[in-house]
Design a binder for these strands. Structure first.
Lengths: 217, 217
DNA sequence: AATTAATTTAAACAAGTGTTGAATTAATTT
DNA sequence: AAATTAATTCAACACTTGTTTAAATTAATT
């Protein structure tokens, strides 16, 4: 097991860490290369423009994460055949990989999720990665949901997905202020506790749209 | 009705608009004052440091919004006395002002919500405003929920609040990519449609924790 | 061992950064 | 009307920004 990292990864690690805290525009190339203990010119040499560094940071983990999540969705659907997969299993499959990486994946993954949360507010930055990786996954997820809730309206499910997406984003970004609300309730870092509550919460939300509303024209 | 705005508001309007799109670090004072058609030095003259401009932008609407939301919560509680307020009314009171301003409040409010979403990921920026305005409101909201769901565990409700907060943030930031998932389903800007779905979704999520789980030790 | 390729260094570039001070104009008070 | 305060302009400051260039060094290939 080689412990010595190459320059490209050193830069990506440093960029990931700093982007997570201060955002794309809040971090300079010189700060990144200083954190990586590397000459500033190497950033341009290895990656090109600053935007390309950001894209490289995103791509690195997007592939891993995406493969895992699609796999879990497929497994969950296959297990239930010929019936549709249970709703809570679909939602668990959609969220489990996030929890797992955020919990046991190390600081790099934590930073990565924080950046994902930022991308939601800056479409100009991560547009390509999102369209290429997350959208197909979301489509597969929504299809599975629709299969297990055939009576629900598609538009309802579409919005429910957005609510799930928002809850997920904030939960796993890790940057949320726990504030003085918790009163010591939340012994942080216990992300399993979060997941135990997130899945029932979201499942119940979706189920509220299981039947079409009484249309009385 | 005076149409002529003073310099301070011109700067705040421009800053709000630009911060919403590119974030705090992504916008320079010169860009702000150019957008406001005003001399760059006036930013420092009227507000001080760049951080103070950001705080002023936040403060302006935080007071208005906060007063409205607290009012609606109080009204909803008073209406139900001596019974606890219905769950869905509490959630509506918590979200209605956001919807209303986002829908009919003009572009300034839209930008404001986008900045709020950013603050969630950059606690260093809006910490003061959040602690001063949003936390007390959240506490009042959670108390009301607890009153109407006395059998639920406090920690469960705390996390449910976070899921609500995430869903709200993403929904009203307005910066979310609608993506190619919608297939023309979502004729955007129809935020009433969002609210009609958000309240039942969140209500059902909370209700999943109405009874304590069977503790079988 | 010689040659080519890949990587790292150090210096520099023009442009943009937040902020300030003195001079000038506008508004308000005496 | 004069005097005083407030608001605005212009120029400049020291510094940082992303990026490039050419030379020096290291690694890989012949």
């Amino acid at each position: 097991m080689t412990n010595k990292k190459n320059t490209k990864d050193l830069i990506l690690d440093a960029a990931e860490k700093l982007f997570a805290v201060r955002g794309f525009y809040g971090v300079s190339i010189r700060q990144i290369t200083a954190e990586a203990d590397v000459d500033p010119a190497l950033a341009s040499y290895h990656f090109g423009k600053k935007n390309d560094i950001f894209d490289a940071v995103m791509l690195r983990r997007a592939e891993i994460l995406n493969r895992e999540r699609i796999q879990m969705l497929d497994d969950c659907i296959r297990r239930a055949q010929p019936n549709p997969a249970p709703l809570h299993e679909i939602i668990d499959a959609f969220t489990h990989a996030l929890l797992n990486r955020s919990n046991k994946g190390g600081t790099g993954w934590k930073s990565y999720f924080a950046i994902i949360a930022q991308i939601n507010n800056h479409p100009e930055l991560g547009g390509v990665i999102m369209t290429q990786y997350f959208d197909p996954l979301a489509k597969k997820f929504l299809d599975a949901i629709h299969a297990t809730m055939p009576a629900a309206e598609k538009e309802d499910l579409f919005w429910c997905y957005h609510f799930l997406s928002g809850a997920l984003t904030l939960t796993f970004s890790g940057t949320e202020r726990i504030s003085n609300l918790s009163d010591g309730l939340c012994q942080s870092s216990n992300l399993d506790a979060v997941h135990e509550r997130l899945v029932p919460f979201i499942t119940a939300g979706f189920e509220a749209f299981k039947q079409q509303p009484n249309k009385t024209p």
